[in-house]
Simulated scan of single mutants.
Amino acid sequence: MKTIGLASVFVTIAVAPVLAADARFVASLGRLDPQTRLEQICDYEAMDRIGHSGTGYHPDRAKSDVMTAPQHLGDLLVGTGAAFRSDGHWYQFSFKCRTARDHLKVLSFEYKVGAIIPETKWNSYGLWR
């Protein structure tokens, strides 16, 4: 019985910083203009979905506007020239991201990972190590 109690305390302690970071991120979104907020919440969702997809990627950065600007269609953001960084490499990806009207919650997200972006092109796309 004590083992179960200790395990649940450990899980609560281990998860608390992650939940706090999410709350801080959502709070900071409220200070952005609606278009930037839409892009930021979708970039964040891309990192989360790709990172938890079981494909071995570990994104620490995503940008929806690397090769082409995304299309803003109300609460839908469509990107064909996006990129994410994983383990020091940048990869192309495309996506469709639908959010709530306030752009603070993602309702649906579809994506497709493309090719690795050669380091020789990073500078022209505004990417970094």
Rank of each mutant, 00 (worst) to 15 (best):
M1W: 07
M1D: 12
M1L: 10
K2H: 08
T3Y: 10
T3W: 08
G5M: 07
G5R: 10
L6Q: 12
T12C: 11
I13Q: 04
I13Y: 04
A14Y: 10
V15Q: 10
A16R: 04
A16H: 00
A23V: 12
S28C: 03
L29K: 07
R31A: 14
L32Q: 14
D33A: 12
P34M: 10
P34G: 08
Q35T: 13
T36W: 03
R37Y: 04
E39K: 15
I41P: 02
C42G: 09
E45N: 09
A46Q: 01
M47N: 05
S53A: 15
S53Q: 02
S53I: 09
G54Q: 01
T55W: 03
G56D: 06
G56V: 08
Y57N: 01
P59V: 01
R61D: 14
K63I: 11
K63V: 12
S64P: 04
S64V: 11
S64R: 08
V66W: 03
V66A: 14
V66Y: 03
M67W: 00
M67G: 00
T68G: 02
T68D: 13
A69G: 06
H72D: 01
H72V: 15
G74D: 05
D75T: 13
L76F: 03
L76V: 13
V78C: 00
G81F: 00
A82L: 07
F84R: 10
F84E: 07
R85S: 13
S86C: 09
S86K: 09
D87E: 15
G88H: 08
Y91I: 08
F93A: 00
S94P: 03
S94T: 09
K96A: 12
C97K: 01
R98E: 14
R98M: 11
A100N: 14
A100H: 05
A100Y: 01
H103I: 01
K105G: 00
V106A: 07
V106Y: 03
V106F: 05
L107Y: 01
S108G: 09
E110M: 02
Y111P: 06
Y111W: 12
Y111Q: 05
K112L: 12
G114A: 01
I116Q: 14
I116E: 15
I116N: 11
P118E: 07
P118C: 00
T120W: 01
K121M: 06
W122I: 03
W122Y: 15
W122N: 13
W122A: 03
Y125S: 00
Y125V: 03
Y125L: 14
Y125K: 02
L127S: 05
